[in-house]
Simulated scan of single mutants.
Amino acid sequence: MKYLKYLLYAVLALVAIFIGKGLLTPSVSYDCETTVNKPADEAWAVMSDESKLAQWIEGYKRGEAVSGEPGTVGAVSNIYVEENGEEMVMQETINALEPNQRMAMTFTMDFMNMDYEISFEEKEGKTMIRSKSMVQGNGLVNQSFVSFFRSAMVEQEEKNLSSLKKLIEENTTDYFPEPEMDEVEEISEM
């Protein structure tokens, strides 16, 4: 009986620590960055290419427009991702957009909300890509889970940015084709 009493105290202590961590840390923030050997306009084009999202965002399945013009401020989309064999949906709202420079979004899920910003800064033909994330659990239990899984979220973002870097640096898609000479002549004749 004595051991049962100690076991109960240990369980209660662990629960108190778990809940206390959520109370003390209701949200977590983290930044990640990488540098690519490409100009910002090409890096942005690759990052924005919907056909390539699954190549750098782990688990990404598809996006589905809900409201607004896709790719513009105020647009809302459902984003479907697979995690541990299960499909999850999150709602993405674009809050700010400066092409080739910055995009800010809010992702809303049942258990948490995330404010996410990705920025591009070009210098001497290379582009620094930075992401900033602020994640808050919905409800005390989810806040506690979020506070304990910060390192896993950072690791996931670093993996995604590493995949994005590789994708950008190996890009062969010409997002900015030069007009053919015939097209230039036709335009000048008008």
Rank of each mutant, 00 (worst) to 15 (best):
Glu86Gly: 10
Val46Lys: 03
Leu8Arg: 06
Gly20Lys: 02
Asn113Met: 11
Met1Val: 13
Ala96Gln: 13
Glu158Arg: 07
Ala104Trp: 05
Ile79Gln: 00
Ile168Gln: 06
Asp49Gly: 13
Ile17Lys: 04
Ser48Lys: 02
Phe120Lys: 10
Tyr116Asn: 12
Gly22Pro: 05
Gln143Trp: 04
Gly22Leu: 09
Asp41Val: 06
Lys52Thr: 04
Thr106Phe: 07
Val66Phe: 04
Ser133Cys: 04
Ala45Leu: 01
Met47Lys: 03
Pro179Phe: 11
Ser77His: 11
Pro179Asn: 09
Lys52Asp: 09
Lys2Cys: 06
Ser147Thr: 06
Ile19Cys: 02
Phe111Cys: 01
Gln55Arg: 14
Lys5Thr: 00
Lys52His: 12
Val11Thr: 01
Ala65Gln: 03
Tyr175Met: 01
Thr35Cys: 05
Lys132Trp: 12
Gln55Met: 13
Met134Leu: 11
Ile118Gln: 10
Ala40Asn: 00
Val184Trp: 07
Tyr6Thr: 03
Gln156Tyr: 03
Met88Gln: 12
Glu186Thr: 07
Val184Ser: 13
Glu170His: 02
Lys38Arg: 10
Glu169Trp: 14
Asn78Trp: 02
Ser51Glu: 14
Met47Ser: 03
Gly139Val: 00
Lys61Ala: 09
Ser48Tyr: 07
Ala96Thr: 05
Glu183Pro: 02
Ser163Asn: 09
Ala152Trp: 00
Gly139Gln: 07
Thr127Cys: 03
Ser27Thr: 04
Asp110Met: 07
Lys159Arg: 13
Ala40Leu: 02
Val135Ile: 14
Ala104Ile: 03
Thr25Leu: 15
Ile79Glu: 11
Tyr6Phe: 11
Ala96Trp: 03
Asn160Glu: 10
Thr72Arg: 00
Gly59Asn: 06
Gly68Ala: 04
Asn113Thr: 15
Ser133Asp: 00
Phe120Ile: 08
Val146His: 04
Thr35His: 08
Leu164Asn: 01
Ser48Leu: 08
Gly20Leu: 00
Gly71Asp: 02
Ala75Val: 05
Leu140Phe: 09
Leu161Asp: 01
Lys123Glu: 10
Asn95Tyr: 07
Leu164Ala: 01
Glu83Ser: 11
Val15Ser: 00
Gly85Glu: 05
Met128Ser: 08
Pro179Lys: 12
Ser188Val: 10
Val141Met: 13
Glu157Ile: 11
